[in-house]
Structures are given as structure tokens and as C-alpha cells.
Simulated scan of single mutants.
Amino acid sequence: MNKEVEVQNLGKKDYKETWDYQEQLFQETLDLKIRNRRENANEPTQNYLLFVEHPHVYTLGKSGDVSHLLVSEEDLKKKNATFYKINRGGDITYHGPGQIVGYPILDLDNFFTDIHKYLRLLEEMVILTLAEYGLKAERSNGETGVWLDVGTPFARKICAMGVRASRWVTMHGFALNVNADLGYFDHIVPCGIQDKAVTSLHVELGKTEVNMQEIQEKLLKHFANLFEAELI
């Protein structure tokens, strides 16, 4: 079992370019697993964690409802935003500047073969990170992601999640609002959930801007501990 995870910081990168890159790494891992099985070999598979910040983009998961995008193609252009239907789980979400997006491309055979546990650990990574800023973040029953003030009229989502997995290899991941422009969420029904607000860390902390690099380092620390991974 290879518990090394190669961390790649892609900086600011177009959504489609990043999706294509994810697919490449994902397929290479799948191909190796299939070859290992066919040839009765044991060549170790690689694990990756990609960090990226996207330009304004809306993505719709395979089970999502396109009516949850509330603006026309023309309006999208005016807002310098793009739209993609993609192959992750979940409904519609927004990515943009001021958001830390993480794409773990892991062979869960190297860790544990349990997608439910995988999602819960990603949520826990974010919950522990936000706790370092004095925020009590938590899960909302039946709603993947990380929330604040769950069970109250003020419940709001701070981190969205949606993943794809095949033969225990994962792709897509999480999007944590750090310095996000929340106005862009007004143009969708986020994650298909009506009447729930979204928030961003800078709003919760009452700051103009939060250090993104600092957040990323904390996420990595908790990821390594929770997954018992060696980051390279």
C-alpha cells in the first residue's frame, strides 16, 4: 500500500484544463490497476492532491437539475463565468477566485475501501481547519459538505463536496470558501438545496481577506493525519 500523496499546487487555472488533467491522472491510475490485475503484478499506484483556484465557473453533477442554474448563457458571459456538466456526484455548485478547491486523486486501496468514510474524512479535514479559527463547523444530516449553525434558521454552507470514484480511485473533491464573492451563489440553487445560505471564511471572521496559503497548509496537516498519508 502506497500512502505517499503528491501535492500539486496548480495556482489559478481554467476549470476545463484542470478537469482534463484530473481525468489524465485518474485514467493512468485505473489503467495501472487493470494491468496489475491482468498480469498478476503489484506495481504501486500513485496518489495526488491537487490545489487550484478557478475563474468563475458553475458545474453541474450527473444527478443535478439544470434548472438550478438561474441565469442564461448570455448572462453567464456578462459575468465572465462558464458552465459545465460534469461526471461527479452532487448537483450544481460554483467555483471562483477566493476559493480553495482540492482534488484528491487517490487509490483508496492504499488507504481504505469505503467511500462514505472518505467523504466524512474530507469533511473532518475542513471542520478541524475551521476550528483553528474559532468556528464550530459541522456536518448537516443528509447533506454532504461542511456547514455552520446546523439546525438553526441561520444554517449556511462554507464547503461543498462532490466526488467520483471507479475501482476505488477518486477524483473531483471539495471547494472551501475562503475569500469568495458570495454574490455568484445568487445565480444558482447551491447543491440543489433550497433556502440554505452560503458563507465564506472572510465573512465569518469579519476580515477583508484571509491568507489562502495558511488555510491550505492547515488543510494539508489535517489531511495527512486523517488519512495517515505521507505528503510529498
Rank of each mutant, 00 (worst) to 15 (best):
D91W: 03
V210Y: 11
L10C: 09
T152P: 06
M171Y: 09
T59H: 04
A155N: 04
K3H: 14
T45S: 15
K136L: 14
F174R: 00
V178T: 08
V189G: 00
K33I: 13
E43F: 14
L182V: 13
Q24C: 05
R88L: 07
A81V: 05
Q99A: 06
R37D: 14
Y58Q: 02
G90A: 09
T18S: 13
Y21G: 06
F154N: 12
I92V: 09
T93M: 04
S200E: 02
K221Q: 14
I92P: 00
Y21L: 14
L122C: 15
T208E: 15
M171K: 13
D107L: 10
V163D: 05
E228W: 09
R167W: 10
A155L: 03
L119T: 13
G183M: 07
I193R: 01
D195H: 14
D109I: 07
S140N: 06
Y118M: 03
E132P: 02
D109L: 11
E138L: 09
C191Q: 01
E228Y: 11
V52S: 02
E39Q: 07
H222Y: 15
Q99P: 05
T144M: 06
K12W: 06
V169P: 00
D107G: 10
A41Y: 08
L148D: 09
G183Q: 14
G64S: 11
E209M: 15
E28G: 10
E17F: 10
A41T: 11
V5D: 03
L220W: 06
Y133I: 11
F26R: 01
T93I: 07
P55L: 07
T199E: 10
L226C: 12
A229S: 14
L226R: 12
K196H: 14
Y184R: 08
Q216E: 15
F223V: 09
K136A: 15
K117Y: 15
T199L: 08
L50G: 00
F223A: 09
F174N: 00
V189H: 00
G142P: 03
L69R: 01
G90S: 09
L106S: 05
G151D: 12
D181A: 08
E74H: 09
A160F: 10
T170F: 03
L119D: 08
G134P: 08
L108W: 07
T129N: 04
R156M: 02
E4W: 14
I232V: 15
L25R: 03
R164D: 05
H95C: 02
G206K: 08
V71F: 03
T93C: 04
Q46P: 10
K157I: 00
Q8C: 10
E217H: 10
Y118F: 13
F112P: 02
F83W: 04
L220D: 05
L128M: 15
F112I: 07
L201A: 07
I105A: 01
K85A: 08
N179W: 03
M171D: 01
D65G: 00
Y184V: 06
A155W: 01
K218F: 12
